[in-house]
Amino acid sequence: MKTTPDQAAVVWRKSSYSNGGDANCVEIADGFPGTVPVRDSKNPDGPALLIPAMAWGAFIRQVKVDWLG
């Protein structure tokens, strides 16, 4: 099982809420079962955090509650 994203092979995507801007945005990648790689879009060659999928899901649900109502 792959646990560390190969930065050259990963396809990163930004939130649809980023409006295409480059400031203050995170990117995530798919294809890592049980893990969500997350990186700073302003530093694409920097490190990626590997967040457990369950924790990422809980985070996204809470963001939707707090910010989107």
Rank of each mutant, 00 (worst) to 15 (best):
A9I: 00
V36Y: 05
N24Y: 02
D45Q: 10
F32A: 00
I51L: 10
L50G: 03
V11S: 09
F59K: 01
R39E: 08
T35W: 04
D6I: 14
G31L: 10
A48F: 01
W56H: 06
T4M: 12
S41Y: 00
D45T: 15
P47Y: 06
P44M: 10
A58C: 08
V26C: 08
A58K: 13
P52F: 13
V36F: 01
Q62C: 11
F59C: 04
I51T: 07
W67F: 15
S18E: 02
A48T: 01
F59G: 00
R61A: 14
D22V: 15
G31I: 07
A55V: 15
I51C: 04
G20R: 10
E27G: 05
V36R: 04
D45K: 13
Q62I: 01
R13V: 07
G20C: 10
S18K: 01
D6K: 12
I60F: 02
V36C: 06
G21P: 00
P5N: 02
V63G: 04
P52K: 03
T3H: 14
Q62Y: 08
V10H: 14
R13E: 11
F32V: 07
K64P: 01
A8E: 11
N19D: 10
A8N: 15
N24I: 01
G31N: 03
Q62T: 13
L68K: 06
G34V: 11
Q62N: 11
I60G: 00
K2N: 13
M54A: 14
T4K: 13
D45P: 01
C25Y: 10
G57Q: 12
P5L: 02
N24F: 02
I51G: 03
K42I: 10
L68P: 02
T35P: 00
W12M: 11
V36A: 12
T4I: 13
G31F: 04
L68G: 13
W12D: 07
P52D: 14
N24P: 00
W12R: 05
I51H: 04
A48E: 02
P52G: 12
C25I: 09
N24S: 04
D22S: 14
L50W: 00
P44Y: 10
P44C: 11
S18C: 08
N43C: 06
V10K: 11
P33V: 12
D30I: 05
A58I: 05
A55R: 12
R13A: 10
W12F: 09
D30G: 11
G57E: 11
S15V: 04
A53R: 14
R39T: 09
A8C: 08
K2C: 13
G20K: 09
R61T: 15
V36I: 15
A29S: 07
G21R: 04
A23M: 01
K14L: 02
V10S: 13
V11T: 09
A9Y: 01
I51M: 15
I28S: 12
S16T: 14
I60V: 14
A58V: 09
Y17R: 14
Q7M: 09
A8G: 08
A9L: 10
N43T: 07
W56L: 02
G46Q: 12
L49P: 00
K14N: 05
L49A: 02
